[in-house]
Amino acid sequence: MATVKFKYKGEEKEVDISKIKKVWRVGKMISFTYDEGGGKTGRGAVSEKDAPKELLQMLEKQ
């Protein structure tokens, strides 16, 4: 499965596409929420050019 690499609050993070719950576009950025486990929801964003094609496909399906 594909992963998304991004920075959040200065920390490098990587999340599996299957854990992503919601995806939306903000200008040229793709924002998303994902399941961190333990009932927590994380947030992240990547630029449109750095987003994996699976993430862009999720955006188109909504």
Rank of each mutant, 00 (worst) to 15 (best):
M1E: 12
M1S: 14
M1Q: 10
M1D: 11
A2M: 15
A2H: 14
A2T: 09
A2G: 10
A2W: 03
A2E: 14
A2L: 10
T3Y: 06
T3E: 02
T3D: 01
T3L: 12
T3Q: 05
T3S: 09
T3F: 13
T3P: 03
T3W: 03
T3H: 03
T3N: 04
V4K: 00
V4E: 00
V4D: 00
V4P: 00
V4T: 01
V4L: 07
V4Q: 00
K5E: 02
K5C: 07
K5Y: 04
K5F: 06
K5V: 09
K5R: 03
K5T: 09
K5I: 05
K5Q: 13
F6S: 02
F6Y: 07
F6E: 00
F6A: 01
F6C: 02
K7I: 11
K7A: 08
K7N: 10
K7P: 09
K7D: 13
K7Y: 13
K7H: 14
K7T: 12
K7S: 09
K7R: 09
K7W: 14
K7F: 11
K7G: 10
Y8Q: 10
Y8P: 01
Y8L: 04
Y8V: 10
K9D: 10
K9F: 02
K9M: 14
K9H: 13
K9P: 01
G10A: 02
G10L: 02
G10P: 00
G10K: 03
G10T: 03
G10M: 03
G10Q: 03
G10E: 12
G10Y: 02
G10I: 01
E11G: 11
E11P: 01
E11C: 15
E11R: 08
E11V: 08
E12D: 09
E12C: 09
E12K: 05
E12H: 05
E12G: 06
K13W: 03
K13F: 08
K13P: 00
K13T: 07
E14I: 10
E14N: 14
E14F: 03
E14P: 00
E14W: 03
E14C: 10
V15E: 03
V15S: 02
V15P: 00
V15K: 01
V15G: 01
V15L: 03
V15H: 01
D16T: 07
D16G: 06
D16W: 08
D16P: 04
D16M: 09
D16C: 11
D16L: 13
I17Q: 05
I17F: 06
I17V: 07
I17L: 12
I17H: 03
S18F: 13
S18V: 12
S18Q: 13
S18W: 12
S18M: 10
S18D: 12
K19Y: 09
K19P: 01
K19W: 13
I20N: 00
I20E: 00
I20M: 03
I20H: 00
I20P: 00
I20W: 01
I20R: 00
I20C: 13
K21H: 15
K21E: 15
K21S: 15
K21P: 02
K21C: 15
K21T: 14
K21A: 12
K22G: 13
K22A: 12
K22E: 15
K22I: 10
K22F: 05
K22L: 10
V23P: 04
V23G: 05
V23R: 01
V23C: 13
V23I: 07
V23T: 06
W24G: 15
W24T: 10
W24S: 08
W24I: 05
W24K: 04
W24Y: 04
W24V: 12
W24P: 00
W24H: 05
R25P: 11
R25H: 06
R25S: 14
R25V: 06
R25A: 15
R25M: 08
R25D: 08
V26N: 12
V26F: 02
V26R: 08
V26G: 04
V26P: 06
V26Y: 15
G27R: 05
G27C: 15
G27P: 13
G27S: 04
G27F: 01
G27N: 12
K28N: 10
K28E: 15
K28S: 05
K28D: 11
M29T: 11
M29W: 04
M29P: 03
M29V: 06
M29H: 08
M29N: 10
M29E: 15
M29C: 14
I30H: 01
I30M: 05
I30K: 00
I30D: 00
I30P: 00
S31G: 04
S31W: 08
S31T: 13
S31R: 06
S31H: 14
S31Y: 03
F32E: 00
F32Q: 00
F32P: 00
F32C: 06
F32S: 00
F32I: 11
T33K: 12
T33Q: 07
T33R: 08
Y34E: 00
Y34S: 01
Y34I: 02
Y34L: 02
Y34T: 01
Y34F: 07
Y34K: 00
Y34Q: 00
D35S: 12
D35G: 09
D35L: 10
D35F: 04
D35P: 09
D35I: 15
D35T: 05
D35C: 14
D35Y: 05
E36C: 08
E36T: 11
E36H: 11
E36L: 07
E36Y: 10
E36V: 05
E36K: 03
G37N: 10
G37T: 03
G37W: 14
G37D: 15
G37P: 06
G38E: 11
G38Q: 15
G38P: 13
G38M: 11
G38S: 07
G38L: 10
G39Y: 14
G39C: 15
G39A: 11
G39M: 07
G39I: 13
G39E: 05
G39L: 08
G39P: 06
G39H: 08
K40M: 15
K40D: 10
K40Y: 15
K40C: 12
K40I: 15
K40P: 12
T41Q: 11
T41H: 15
T41W: 04
T41F: 14
T41N: 14
T41A: 10
T41P: 08
G42L: 08
G42S: 12
G42C: 11
G42I: 08
G42W: 11
G42N: 09
R43K: 11
R43S: 10
R43Y: 06
G44M: 02
G44P: 01
G44L: 02
G44I: 05
G44K: 01
G44H: 02
G44Q: 01
G44D: 01
A45M: 11
A45G: 09
V46P: 00
V46E: 01
S47V: 05
S47P: 14
S47G: 11
S47Q: 08
S47T: 13
E48T: 09
E48F: 03
E48P: 13
E48N: 04
K49R: 13
K49V: 12
K49A: 07
K49C: 13
K49T: 11
K49Q: 10
K49D: 15
K49M: 11
K49P: 12
K49L: 10
K49I: 15
D50K: 13
D50A: 13
D50F: 07
D50M: 08
D50S: 09
D50Y: 08
D50V: 07
A51S: 10
A51G: 12
A51M: 03
A51K: 01
A51L: 07
A51H: 02
A51Y: 01
A51I: 05
P52M: 05
P52K: 03
P52Y: 02
P52G: 07
P52N: 11
P52E: 04
P52L: 10
K53T: 08
K53H: 14
K53L: 15
K53E: 12
K53S: 06
K53D: 14
K53P: 07
K53Q: 13
E54F: 12
E54L: 10
E54G: 10
E54S: 08
E54P: 10
E54W: 06
L55M: 05
L55E: 00
L55R: 00
L55I: 13
L55H: 00
L56N: 06
L56M: 10
L56F: 04
L56Y: 09
L56H: 06
L56D: 06
L56R: 10
L56E: 11
L56K: 10
Q57W: 14
Q57N: 12
M58T: 03
M58Y: 08
M58S: 03
M58D: 02
M58A: 04
M58P: 01
M58E: 14
L59A: 11
L59V: 11
L59T: 08
L59R: 01
L59F: 02
L59M: 07
L59G: 02
L59E: 08
L59H: 03
E60T: 04
E60I: 07
E60W: 02
E60M: 05
E60Q: 03
E60Y: 03
E60K: 06
E60D: 15
K61A: 14
K61M: 12
K61I: 14
K61E: 09
K61Q: 12
Q62S: 15
Q62M: 09
Q62P: 14
Q62N: 08
